[in-house]
């Protein structure tokens, strides 16, 4: 099924903010560059209801921002969609990248595959998947209009999504396992003003139902009491895990959680391979991903011109 191998100076894996910025910088340095994207262009940005901390955009919905990014990027490089990397093989002079359909070689690869939602890990989460459980409020909120749901989590995504759900007419309650939110103060303030009910210091122990979700069992960590909250839907935003499974055999150094370890110049443990954005952990914000993408591409350019691995 593998067609002809195409060679690039730089192959960027992932079309989120980090990958798209890296590709623009690489292309503008004069390097022949392509982006391979397994899923959707824009990554997690495109699923965010509202973004208010990316410089130059006071308030923008994620899908629009992702479109803007895409339009800008496509002035310089092609984004090949539906290209999921199955294997990345570092060879002596090149990096070989295999997808389900094709094969690419590159002088350098920039990994910007981002992260995906973490599962909660409670009873019933698997059983009711697709039957009232969602990890994407902007995708699925509409189906719960006029219905009662809980939003589980306490970070920016959970708080932002809860506000979004309330705005589209969903009766939402937020459940957080700590007594304070991890989300930034501006978000928390808006949550307070919204009147969205909060269940703090509490963990969802079980999602139950009958064919579809009927409710959650919630443990109050302060009192030890378990209460029953009847709901039609459960939205989960309890952090992310890096998309690095495809790298396991490459020998690249990952940390304990699975994030790619890089130096300040975004070099990984393997020559010719760089990483940027959420896949490297740290402060997972759009502007940080963009910054790291710019650094990764610039380092790749310098290394290809003057390889440290040949010194």
């Amino acid at each position: 099924m593998v067609s002809n191998t195409e060679h690039f100076n730089v192959v960027v894996v992932g079309a989120g903010p980090a990958g798209m910025t890296a590709a623009i910088y690489a292309a503008r340095s004069g390097m022949k560059t392509v982006i391979l994207e397994a899923g959707s262009v824009g990554g997690q940005v495109a699923e965010s209801p509202e973004i208010e901390n990316y410089l130059g955009f006071e308030s923008v919905n994620g899908m629009d921002l992702a479109s803007t990014f895409r339009k800008h990027t496509e002035r310089y490089v092609e984004i090949k969609e539906g290209e999921e990397i199955e294997q990345i093989i570092p060879e002596r002079e090149i990096i070989r990248l295999k997808t389900g359909w094709s094969e690419y070689t590159a002088d350098a690869a920039i990994i910007a595959t981002g992260a995906h939602h973490r599962k909660l890990g409670c009873n019933g989460e698997e059983e009711f998947s697709g039957r009232g459980i969602s990890y994407c409020a902007t995708c699925d909120g509409f189906f719960f209009k006029g219905k009662k749901v809980v939003m589980i989590g306490g970070g920016n995504t959970a708080v932002g999504d809860a506000l979004y759900l309330k705005n589209v007419g969903v009766d939402v309650t937020i459940i957080h396992r700590r007594d304070v939110f991890r989300a930034e103060a501006a978000h928390v303030k808006r949550l307070e003003e919204s009147g969205i009910p909060k269940i703090m210091n509490s963990e969802v122990r079980e999602i139950y139902g009958e064919k579809v979700v009927k409710g959650v069992k919630v443990l109050n960590k302060a009192t030890g009491d378990v209460s029953d909250v009847p709901v039609d839907g459960v939205f989960i935003a309890v952090g992310v895990v890096p998309n690095t499974d495809f790298l396991k055999e490459s020998g690249i150094k990952l940390d304990d959680i699975g994030y790619i370890v890089t130096d300040r110049e975004q070099r990984t443990s393997l020559p010719r391979i760089y990483a940027a954005g959420d896949v490297t952990g740290g402060l997972q914000q759009i502007i940080v991903g963009c910054g790291e993408g710019a650094v990764a591409a610039t380092t790749a350019y310098e290394d290809i011109s003057n390889p440290y691995w040949k010194k």
């Binding site: 539906g82 999921e84 697709g130 994407c136 995708c139 699925d140 189906f143 064919k211």
Partner: peptide, 28 residues
């Protein structure tokens, strides 16, 4: 069809749902 997440793919055999695929997945 109790669609609560999209995308959902409903696979019909002779008019009956035999499989539901929830969320975007790789083509393969």
């Amino acid at each position: 069809h109790q669609i609560m997440n999209i995308p959902t793919l409903l696979i019909f055999k002779n008019g009956e749902v035999v499989e539901r695929i929830i969320g975007a997945r790789p083509r393969r």
